[in-house]
Design a protein around this nucleic acid. Sequence first.
DNA 1: CGACTAGTACGAGTTTCATCGTACAGCCTG
DNA 2: CAGGCTGTACGATGAAACTCGTACTAGTCG
Lengths: 125, 125
Amino acid sequence: MPATTTASPSIKVIPEPPGLPEPLPEPSVDELRLETVLGALSDPLRLTIVRKLLLESEDFDHTCGWFGLDRPKSSLTHHFKALREAGVTRQRQYGLERRSHVRIDDLNARFPGLLDLVAAWTPQR
Amino acid sequence: MPATTTASPSIKVIPEPPGLPEPLPEPSVDELRLETVLGALSDPLRLTIVRKLLLESEDFDHTCGWFGLDRPKSSLTHHFKALREAGVTRQRQYGLERRSHVRIDDLNARFPGLLDLVAAWTPQR
DNA sequence: CGACTAGTACGAGTTTCATCGTACAGCCTG
DNA sequence: CAGGCTGTACGATGAAACTCGTACTAGTCG
């Protein structure tokens, strides 16, 4: 039988507390496609986002602004949407803010080891 | 110190015999970039190629024709070149033929677990 | 040498994607 | 309710990338 999701020591798995807003539209676990996920991760900016979420998440999830990315807002919207639609991140609306976190359990279940590669990535030699 | 490269049971590691033709130009191990490799693998046709190489390689390496892909030759050239330039495959010229194999050791060393995901991939539900 | 063959090079058409400006929607606070 | 804030939607632009036809190169074998 499947063990409960295992994660590498560096990647914190944070259970979702109840009573959260509904997530924005996203693919279900069995709709996750490797080629789509890899495509979403084949971009340095998006790798930066996901890696930062994996390694520096202290709270449950984070707004666009938290990342400190020096790009116009509409560019960031584009990339966060790409990550969500590929199934890499989950986004919820909290009043004004739209917060993101990585779907660690789902990705570990479908593509074990993939997030470890992202966590180990370094921006550009 | 690093253990010698480990591979999952399903992926055969075949040592390269001496006296082969020089490989075509390719990135060295430390030039491999995660975003580039993921980009090369974010295409269903190329995933098919790499997966078939991983699971069905009995000989050392294989020609374009071996894959039985129903695409024009120039399209195949394009994809094989993309895989080689990303560092996923190595190509050698044997007389008329250009044969490919996956750089299993190099990829396992830099991105452990990645090839297992490719081997476990299924074309389209 | 001439035919055959594996594969490349080049170029065009099409699509997809990244980037970003601008305008707008929704929420909060005074 | 007005202003400020987070973030989206839309649209334009330019750059890649996929697809493929055609012409070509380079081995091989009769």
